[in-house]
Nucleic acid binder design. Sequence first.
DNA 1: TACTGTTTTCCTGCTT
DNA 2: GAAGCAGGAAAACAGT
Length: 321
Amino acid sequence: MNPFSDYEKTDISSVVFNQDYFRTFEENEDHLLLDMDSLVQRKDEDLLMSRIYDSSMKKCSLGEDAEEVDGTGWSSKPIEDWCQEETINWLMTAASCLGQSYGSIQQGLALPGKDLAALGRHDFVARDPVYGERLYNLLHTQAVSSQCKSASLDYFTPRHGEQSHTDERGAENFQSLCNEDEPQAIGSNNASDAESDNSIEISTKRPPGRPRLLKTKKNSTSQGKLWEFIRDLLRNRKTCPSLICWEDYSQAKFRFVRSDEVAKLWGSRKGNTKMTYEKLSRAMRYYYKRKIFLPVLGRRLVYQFGPNATGWQTDNPNFRF
DNA sequence: TACTGTTTTCCTGCTT
DNA sequence: GAAGCAGGAAAACAGT
């Protein structure tokens, strides 16, 4: 039964559900990362190059008190001298190099350079079981090979009177760094029992508004809208009813079972590790105006699809059979 | 480049 | 007191 049948007739068969999308979730349930970027077939090498260029050139800042850091500043100094933002810029570049979004990488590696350099291979893997090993290799190979590092940047940074895509060797060097599984040389600083604090603390009050992006620029592929994301969670047995469930399907009401996990999933999809249920719910409330969601008064964590939401219908709510 | 829509972030006040 | 809800304000980002 569609409580909004007066408004619309939705053809369920028209709803395409991407199983690959949720396979990633299944494989990383403890990780809770939905890496959409990894599911997008890269068109060609140029796309990868442009993504690396984007992230390398990007500036970022952490809060109003943080000094704005040049996106390539990390390339001209030893790892130990990197500030946290420069590490983040390096991570963005490394993520692009691995064909991933910055958000796919566990943010426990976003440390000041001296802390990062003190981490051993196992520390990297512990902080990011998925990409830690490769990031470690990439970092330390770069650390001992300034030639490769500069080659990569030379390639992506146009010089005066010169096209950026002229130094093919530089690109090859950088690509080979990205692809290699084993490091050619490892620094001597991998044995560390330093207790590094992997949390990013921003002690000063930030002004309202959205801070500058700390991730690679997204390509043109749409990531989908929040309400569609919620709808798809309800239509997938991997997430419904474990994370989100139908409260009253006949009235299109659903409930967040694990609101924080849903928020993390949404954040992962957007490459935003700081997403919380509070922020997600604010975005949900903005949909009230457009009648995509309707408020359910007196019920916590319960929302209702509105007349302008489409494609949420299912033959098997909560996958009972 | 300007504009618009969609988030994201922060906040205060209220309710459960 | 904690968690969640409601909504204003400001800002970033994406798409047109």
